[in-house]
Write a protein that binds this DNA or RNA. Structure first.
Length: 600
DNA sequence: GCCGTTTTCGGCCCGACTGTTTTCAGTCG
């Protein structure tokens, strides 16, 4: 039993204890233990075998013994017994916003509700409002929560699909009868939310490819197993198609199945205007009708008296197809029919930023606040990834829930960073803070402290109201502070979980341009905030982007690559992204940035 | 269930918000 399985068992116990209404500190102890195990650099089995498992902070006698039992026997009777007390489907209810363990327990015990469907039914029959502690409003909110959950669960976050896409590509490439294979669809376009996966390959033996595809180990259900197209379902209801086409049609098919629909429609209209026809099966030159009249004898059987003749325009790559339409190559990320066709016609498609351009990142957390990796480990990981600098930005004191740093702890961390930097070569840790934006745009720390740091990320975490003007003014006020270098996750959205708080982004972007504040492209797969749809106009107003992983673990530093996808969707070039600057240049930029001269 | 310069019991992170209440419980971050 590996670490991640132990972590999920401990978290499962914590959830079940909450449902039971046990001492909340007991369930918290299990959550803490899960977190500690998740953070351990070593394998549990090694620690136990070498007798070094005792004495880890957060894991006492009780939980410690359970973990040992779990790791050595692969089973934990305590957990199995706990699970028997509630139907497994009851845990679904906790996914509904507004339903926590206490309410789930009451719903189950009083009304026998054990899954989302029965909860929805009870709401509609107004049986919820009568329960003690529940009212009409709660009933309405739960129903809204169910609708939200349902509408979101049909979609998947890009970042959550990266692994399975790579695994399936590797798997398909191992099959000798597959010549070319590519992921297409909205995943290839780098959309932050993806409904299903589309794969495309070429082969002379489609049947064998289809048989191989449906045997992919992650397949949970086969929906369709055809000759040239199959559909399967992975975990979490993720649907995935694979199509096989002849090798000579690959370019057209890849273009077609990459989309977007809107982009394809625009391309087809362009083709028609040029006397051509574009489909997934090819690009065809249509001959003029009068040149090829259909023979009279044939026309009697055919209501159409004229048959246009088609001749296929041979294209080996997508680039060839675009060229045949008089267009420069359009990268998949831009294919949203948002100006890319006009740009391609005028040869104005920019050279988009690539992840290899990134030289360092800001906004990373450590164990000092709510991160799960130490400062030392984060620095080491960043160096190993070939980055030149790593910005640390732990939470500020108002973020209690994230163990935000007090002034004293900020100064202590600053000293530690200076000390580490004195021993580092060709790499630098940058000292920063993710400073909470409080009511009325006040910052969580005084300017005196902020001035000491290399940079400041200002973020809104709590207390955002439903008043757009109020939220907007808070962000603006924060950006006007001369020590605020960048605005963190500007809209606060959590993809498929929480909508952005109401904020006038146009005003925020204008203020960023005016004050020279950088805007973050937070690359946490849950956030990807600011949205790609806003970047092009922000760029045109002179706003600089900073792609940050918002990493809470060494493994999350690499999230910046997902951020680069989004930056590309936002038409950003290397020169628009601040962290494409070398360590030398970033140091200079921070000297100006952190001490903005103009008072606002 | 964990922990200890408040040490073997008693506290454990804090505050906003909402909706339910008549002083507070549940949820969320």
């Amino acid at each position: 039993m590996d670490k991640s399985m132990v972590v999920s068992v401990l978290e499962g116990i914590a959830t079940l204890l909450e449902l039971k209404g046990e001492n909340p500190f007991k369930s918290r102890a299990y959550r803490t233990a899960a977190r500690v195990i998740d953070t351990l650099p070593e394998e549990l089995s090694d620690l136990i075998a070498q007798g070094r498992f005792k004495g880890i902070k957060g894991i006492g006698e009780g939980i410690g013994e359970k973990i040992i039992q779990l790791v050595t026997t692969g089973n934990l009777p305590y957990y199995e017994e706990l699970k028997k007390e509630f139907p497994p489907s009851l845990l679904e209810l906790l996914d509904i916003p507004g339903v926590g363990p206490k309410r789930a327990k009451v719903l189950y015990e009083e009304l026998g509700i054990k899954d989302i469907d029965s909860l929805e039914k009870a709401c509609k029959e107004h049986r919820i409002a009568g329960l003690a502690g529940f009212g009409q409003k709660t009933e309405e909110n739960i129903l809204l929560g169910i609708n939200q959950f349902r509408s979101f669960s049909a979609y998947h976050r890009y970042g959550d699909l990266v692994d399975i896409v790579e695994e399936l590509l590797d798997y398909l490439k191992k099959n000798p009868s597959i010549v070319h294979v590519h992921v297409a669809g909205s995943f290839r376009r780098g959309k932050e939310i993806v409904k299903d996966l589309d794969f495309l390959c070429t082969s002379k033996n489609p049947g064998a490819v289809m048989d191989y595809f449906v045997q992919f180990p992650q397949v949970r259900r086969i929906v369709n197993h055809g000759e040239t197209k199959s559909t399967v379902i992975f975990d979490k209801g993720l649907s995935c198609d694979l199509r096989v086409v002849p090798d000579e049609d690959y370019a057209y098919a890849l273009l077609h199945f990459t989309g977007s629909k809107e982009h394809n429609v625009a391309l087809r209209q362009r083709a028609i205007a040029q006397g051509k026809k574009l489909s997934e099966w090819g690009l065809f030159q249509l001959s003029k009708l009068e040149e090829k009249p259909v023979a009279e004898s044939e026309s009697e059987d055919n209501p159409q008296t004229m048959q246009p003749q088609e001749s296929k325009i041979f294209c080996r790559t997508e680039k060839d197809v675009y060229a045949a339409l008089g267009l420069a190559y359009i990268p998949p990320e831009l294919r949203e029919n948002m100006g890319e066709i006009e740009a391609a016609q005028n040869n104005e498609i920019p050279r988009l930023v690539e992840w290899e351009d990134i030289r360092g990142v800001f906004h990373c957390h450590t164990t000092e606040s709510d991160g799960r990796s130490s400062l030392e480990d984060m620095a080491k990981a960043a160096m190993e990834m070939g980055l030149e600098y790593l910005g640390i930005a732990d939470h500020s004191k108002s973020s209690f829930q994230a163990n935000g740093l007090s002034e004293e702890r900020v100064y202590a961390q600053l000293d530690k960073i200076k000390n580490m930097n004195s021993r580092l070569q060709n790499f630098r840790l940058l000292s920063g803070i993710e400073c909470d934006i409080l009511k009325e745009g006040k910052l969580d720390f005084s300017d005196t402290l902020l001035e000491e740091l290399d940079y400041v990320v200002a973020s809104l975490h709590a207390g955002f109201s439903n008043d757009e003007e109020d939220n907007t003014q808070r962000l603006i006020k924060a950006m006007e502070n001369p020590y605020v270098t960048m605005l963190g996750h500007p809209t606060g959205r959590l993809l498929l979980v929480r909508k952005p708080y109401p904020v006038n982004m146009e005003k925020v972007i204008d203020c960023a341009a005016k004050t020279g504040t950088w805007i973050e492209l937070n690359a946490q797969p849950m956030r990807l905030d600011m949205d790609w749809r806003l970047w092009k106009s922000a760029r045109d107003k002179g706003v600089k982007c900073v792609i940050n992983p918002d990493a809470h673990h060494v493994k999350e530093i690499g999230y910046y690559k997902i951020g680069v996808n989004i930056a590309r969707k936002g038409w950003l070039r290397k020169e628009d992204v601040i962290n494409c600057l070398s360590l030398n240049d970033i140091t200079k930029a921070l000297q100006i940035k952190g001490r903005k001269k103009t008072p606002f």
